[in-house]
């Protein structure tokens, strides 16, 4: 159910959702993850979203209106998807509730230790992927490339 057709309102509600997720991280004693989540998603990515929306100035008037038959068929299709999902998940494997592990595991020191010892290869590969994506974006954004 879509509460708001205004894209800027939707962006604000999404930011609110990010704050709720950050709150969950804090409750899990993972303050570093919470604050990085806020900085990256709420502080950077959503600002760019808002930026684009403001530049394009999207309004509900410009949005194409769907006809009633489309709405009904979309409702039936998504309802059937929901039924299928519920049927598939019902009676599935029960996830075991994790026992009380080390509560300090989310603190920044422990996170750093793990990232740079046990998971150093995936971490570095992720870093290289980001670098490649950044270089690619700059290259695509460049208007004239001298061959």
């Amino acid at each position: 159910m879509v509460f708001s057709r205004n894209p800027v309102h939707s962006v604000l509600l999404l930011i609110f959702t990010f704050f709720c997720i950050a709150g969950q991280y804090v409750l899990l004693n993972a303050q570093f993850l919470a604050v990085v989540h806020i900085i990256v998603y709420a502080g950077a990515i959503m600002v760019l979203f808002l930026f684009v929306l403001m530049l394009l100035n999207l309004n509900k008037d410009t949005e194409p209106q769907k006809s009633t038959i489309w709405r009904i068929s979309a409702g039936i299709a998504s309802g059937m998807l929901l039924v299928t999902l519920v049927g598939a998940l019902r009676g599935g494997v029960q996830m075991p509730v994790p026992g009380s592990g080390n509560a300090e595991v989310g603190l920044v020191e422990n996170l750093g230790q793990v990232l740079f010892t046990d998971f150093v290869v995936p971490f570095e590969i992720a870093g290289i992927l980001f670098l490649a994506a950044m270089v690619g974006a700059v290259l695509v954004g460049k208007r004239d490339i001298k061959a």
């Binding site: 604050v35 900085i39 709420a42 502080g43 950077a44 600002v47 808002l50 603190l107």
Partner: peptide, 17 residues
């Protein structure tokens, strides 16, 4: 909090809203 300085940076990045 043990991430004090990141908290300040996070709020600085929210200030733009």
């Amino acid at each position: 909090v043990n991430i004090g300085i990141l908290y300040v940076v996070g709020l600085a990045s929210l200030g733009v809203y």
